[in-house]
Computed example of a mutant assay.
Amino acid sequence: MGSYSQVEHTRIEDIGFRIYTEDEIRHISLVEVTNDESFNELGHIIPSGLYDLRMGPVPGRTKDICQTCGKTNLRCQGHCGHIELPLPVYNPFFYNVLNKTLRGICCNCHRIQVRAHHVLLLKYQMQLLDAGYGYEALELENILSRSISSPMEATEVAVGIDDKELSQKDAGIVADLMNLKKTLSKYCDKVIRGGTCSPETSTSIIKNLETEVVKSFIKKCYYSDKKRCIFCHQSIVRLTLQNSRFIRSGVNKKEKDKDKDKDKDKDGQTEEVEAEREEREEEGGKWRREI
């Protein structure tokens, strides 16, 4: 007698989770919630509200029937709805991810604190890992080390901004990056389209490699030991996450003094305005008494 352990396709080896995209949410949604009221004065459910019957009956109301599947609250499993938000809202489940991302970005020039060749390495490594090539993705690090004889300088290369022409130094950096991009792209195309290598069958290995690659990239972005941005050379402003709020910290004394001076100027202007108003009121009172 056979058993399920002998059947290859009945064993679950790996499982992964992800969130729905905007298009997927709209596709599976049966109603768009546009009304902030749920019940009217008679206790009836308001259409397009949070308890719209197209999403299923309300628990405790045995007479209500689902308008989608036609079942009662004991049989209906519920259906999805969605709310169109006027502005982008960050998912609170990913505050830690956002915190890690902001730790590696300059608040002045809004650039990630990592050199350009590391960004190219991450891009093509993730491209190979998505296709299932783990060993080949790690091999890109060796290709990068061979392609770059000396570390690239972290300078701001601005093309077409304020009509500034590139210096010879910046032009050389751009040329090196373009050559590196061609080398990495050619290698990825050879692996994926050429079929010279077989992809990894275990998704758990690929997921672990993706996690390690991303962690390595994030560590390069952190500026815990850096006091200034590697691009604009401005002082680093740190953000701390407290009670689901990002609080600015590490402000320089000069900035604090400037803020204090601004406050003093505002206070001085308000005091002068109040003094002038009091003088006018006194003059008006004297004028009335003389009349």
Rank of each mutant, 00 (worst) to 15 (best):
I12V: 08
I12H: 08
D23H: 09
S29M: 10
E32N: 10
N35T: 07
N40G: 13
H44W: 01
Y51S: 12
D52W: 03
L53N: 00
R54D: 02
G56N: 04
K63Y: 07
I65M: 10
Q67G: 01
K71E: 09
Q77Y: 09
G78Q: 06
C80I: 07
C80F: 15
P86I: 00
T101N: 14
R103L: 04
G104N: 04
I112T: 15
A116V: 07
Q125T: 14
E136A: 14
N142H: 08
R146D: 11
G160C: 03
I161C: 00
D163H: 10
K169C: 03
K181E: 13
K181T: 01
T183C: 06
T183K: 09
L184P: 01
C188D: 04
R193F: 14
G195F: 00
S198Y: 03
I205L: 13
I205W: 13
L209S: 05
E210R: 15
E212M: 12
V213S: 07
F217L: 04
C221D: 01
S224V: 00
S235Q: 12
Q242T: 09
N243L: 07
D261M: 06
G268L: 15
T270R: 15
V273G: 12
E276G: 12
E281A: 15
G285H: 08
R289V: 00
R289P: 00
